[in-house]
Every structure is written in structure tokens, then in C-alpha cells.
């Protein structure tokens, strides 16, 4: 039976197939192809975005590498500058330290010199004191009338050869002066006369002489003529040591 051609079946099958084409086109091909196209578009869009991101990443990487190179260069420059600054600062600090050390050295030197000078002064003073004490003891034990006689004779000789200025000052005296003569030992008349003669030669005015004894003088004379005092005794000479020692203090 199927080998027989049926026109109704023929027409109906044509219509059926056309309807099926329409149905599948509406329900199957069109939505599926649209979805596939949409997915392709989405994939292409995603790929494009990924490529864009990759390109941007490459750009960022290159930028980063360039920046890193720049940073390296800047770092090297900064390091060189830092080393230079450090060298300069070290040199300046070293110079300053040297200067301070030199000042400290000079200060120490000055202190040392001062201490040495003070020590020397102290030693000198001590030596002078000792010397004065020794001389005082020595002179005290060796002082005698003979020594005093020699000192008087020496004084008389010296009074004869006074400088002119001193002679002129004696000549200018207005009032008749009193001559006080102190001695450690009793003064012989001979020497009293020699002294009176000497002063009479020096001073034209009438003179009055007073004699006294002072053991403190040890040996020799002290002559007071107004404001003029002539020390020719051992006590005065010894006191010079003491004054000298006092000057050092």
C-alpha cells in the first residue's frame, strides 16, 4: 500500500513539513542561534577585555620597570650624594675634633705650664724662706761688734761717695735736723765722730745726734734723718729675703 501515491498525503506532508520548519525555526534554531551568538559575543567581549587588561598589565609592567630603573638611578644618585655628604660631614667633624683637641692640648699645656710655674714659684718661695731662715740663724750666730765696726767703716766710706742728687737734697734742708743713729752694739766714739763728720760735710746746718742700741739690728746701723732712713744693718738685709719671699706669694 505504501507504494501507492496518495495526493492527500502528499499535500498534507508538504504542509506538515513547512509547519515543522516554521515551528523549529521559531522554537529551536532562532533562540539557540541567538544564544550561541550572544555567548560568542560575550566570549569575544571577555577576550577583548582580557586582552585589554593584559595590555594594560603589560603597560603597567613596563611603566613599573621604567619607574624601577628611574628609582635605581635616583637611588644611586642619592647614595653618591649621601656618601659625599657623609664624607664632608666626617671631614668637618674631624677638623672640628682636631681643633678641639688642639685647643684642649694647648689648654693642658697652659695648665701644665701654669702648674709648673706655680710649683717653681712655690719652690723658689720655699727656698727663699729657707734661705732667709738659714741666713737669719747664720747671721744671728755670726753677728758681732767687729762685724758692726766693719759695716760702720763701710758706711762711712759710702757716705763720702754719695751721688750728687742725694747731696743736693741734703743741701736743701731748711730746719736743723736731728740724726737718730741706732746700732746693735754700743758704738765707739771714734765711729760716732766719723759719722758726725760725714754728715757735717753733707749738711751745712747744725746737727743733733742721738744714739741708741737695738739688738734686733743684729749688726750695723740705722740712721734716721727726717724722712730719710739709711739701713746699714743685717736685720734689714735679712728682711729683704723675707720681702722677696713675700713678693712671690
Amino acid at each position: 500500500m505504501s507504494m501507492e501515491f496518495d495526493f492527500s498525503t502528499f499535500i498534507l506532508e508538504m504542509l506538515n513539513f513547512l509547519v515543522l520548519v516554521w515551528i523549529l525555526q521559531r522554537l529551536f534554531y532562532k533562540p539557540l542561534l541567538a544564544t550561541i551568538a550572544q555567548r560568542k559575543l560575550h566570549i569575544e567581549d571577555t577576550l577583548a577585555k582580557a586582552q585589554s587588561v593584559q595590555q594594560e598589565a603589560e603597560t603597567q609592567r613596563e611603566l613599573y620597570e621604567n619607574r624601577q630603573k628611574l628609582w635605581e638611578q635616583e637611588k644611586q644618585i642619592a647614595l653618591v650624594a649621601l656618601h659625599q655628604d657623609l664624607d664632608t660631614e666626617r671631614r668637618a667633624q674631624f677638623d672640628l675634633l682636631q681643633k678641639e683637641l688642639e685647643q684642649e692640648r694647648q689648654r693642658n699645656q697652659a695648665n701644665l705650664s701654669r702648674q709648673q710655674h706655680e710649683f717653681e714659684q712655690h719652690a723658689q718661695q720655699l727656698a727663699l724662706k729657707n734661705a732667709a731662715r738659714f741666713a737669719h740663724i747664720l747671721v744671728q750666730h755670726t753677728a758681732s761688734a767687729e762685724l758692726e765696726t766693719k759695716l760702720v767703716q763701710f758706711l762711712v766710706e759710702q757716705l763720702k761717695t754719695l751721688p750728687d742728687t742725694l747731696n743736693a737734697s741734703f743741701q736743701r734742708l731748711q730746719n736743723p735736723p736731728v740724726v737718730n743713729i741706732s746700732s746693735a752694739f754700743p758704738l765707739d766714739a771714734i765711729y760716732r765722730q766719723q759719722l758726725a763728720d760725714c754728715f757735717s760735710t753733707l749738711i751745712v746746718l747744725p746737727l743733733t745726734f742721738h744714739y741708741a742700741e737695738e739688738a734686733m739690728l743684729l749688726a750695723g746701723l740705722r740712721i734716721e734723718l727726717g724722712s730719710w732712713v739709711l739701713q746699714a744693718n743685717l736685720q734689714h738685709e735679712l728682711s729683704g729675703f723675707a720681702e722677696l719671699a713675700h713678693d712671690f706669694e
Binding site: D6, T9, N16
Partner: peptide, 22 residues
């Protein structure tokens, strides 16, 4: 005048099934 045989019926059934699956 339209003669509907088994082939047409089967075709319709197939069409219905395909449309449903689609």
C-alpha cells in the same frame, strides 16, 4: 475529500514531539 493515513498521523506525532522537545 482529504484522506488521512497512518503516515500523516505519525508525522503529526513526530511534529508534536519535536515541537515539544524544542
Amino acid at each position: 475529500s482529504i484522506h488521512i493515513n497512518g503516515s500523516v498521523m505519525t508525522t503529526w506525532a513526530i511534529m508534536l514531539m519535536l515541537a515539544l522537545v524544542a
